[in-house]
Design a protein around this nucleic acid. Structure first.
Lengths: 127, 127
DNA sequence: ATGTATGGACTACATATGTAGTCAATAATG
DNA sequence: CATTATTGACTACATATGTAGTCCATACAT
């Protein structure tokens, strides 16, 4: 019954995905630019993430250092598959189509996708 | 300040995206296979979706017929872009990469993506 | 040593969400 | 017509979530 990471909690995870382990005060500091949160709020979110087993702590003297237990890649993959299944029948193309605005994806996006697809085709051949 | 459609509410939207307008009893019936919900629950979700302006109602005698105000495409597009921005830096390729398991996407997915990309390149040329 | 700042543990409280129950009007049925 | 079933309106209540506050122990500065 692993509870879901919420929006606010995800903001905290982002900080720790970028750099870890960090003390609560560091996380507070890194969020101070983007979020207007009371340090208490950040502490609460950290505690909830530990409860949810999304973070672990290691003692550092009197305080804790926090590190992710869930990698961003894993989290992102699950979120992507969940969205794909829930709204796009588990198919990739409709999802990608909906990412684009009226005028398609950017050149860069298209180039990256082509490279990715070429790569996946290779994987397929090798197996 | 349009509140977000929740998971349970989305199940209701799905029914009405598939066919509308429908009376509450019809929605209840269509959900009875997949969800083990009390009809009251479905009614509550319908009412909340009307509040959130995701559905409209038209009177049909003593009851209401519900229809989506938000199309599935719009909703899905917003959800897809939101996920992409939140977790993949707004780029399409990493999202697609994370959709795949260890062994890449299915042949069908790859074929569909290629077709989609070819199409988007055409759009690009025309404009 | 003594006051003050800092850090974690626990508590708080409004709103959201999942999941229903109650009530009153009305439609359908015997 | 009297009874029952249906429907929307309103209410309920536990848990989740956003956003903090309080308390207490301890580290640090004087």
């Amino acid at each position: 019954m692993k509870s879901r990471i919420t929006q606010s909690e995800l903001d905290v995870m982002d900080v720790l995905w970028a750099e870890s382990p960090l003390a609560a005060a560091d996380v507070v500091h890194k969020l101070s630019g983007s979020k207007n949160w009371n340090p208490r709020t950040v502490k609460t979110l950290l505690a909830r993430l530990v409860e949810k087993k999304a973070l672990t702590t290691q003692a550092d003297g009197r305080r804790y250092l926090y590190s992710p237990l869930v990698s961003k890649d894993d989290y992102a993959a699950k979120a992507a598959r969940s969205l794909s299944n829930r709204l796009f029948g588990g198919r990739a193309a409709p999802l990608v189509a909906h990412l684009a605005g009226a005028d398609g994806l950017s050149e860069d996006d298209i180039a990256e996708l082509e490279a990715l697809i070429a790569n996946m085709k290779n994987m397929d051949i090798k197996s």
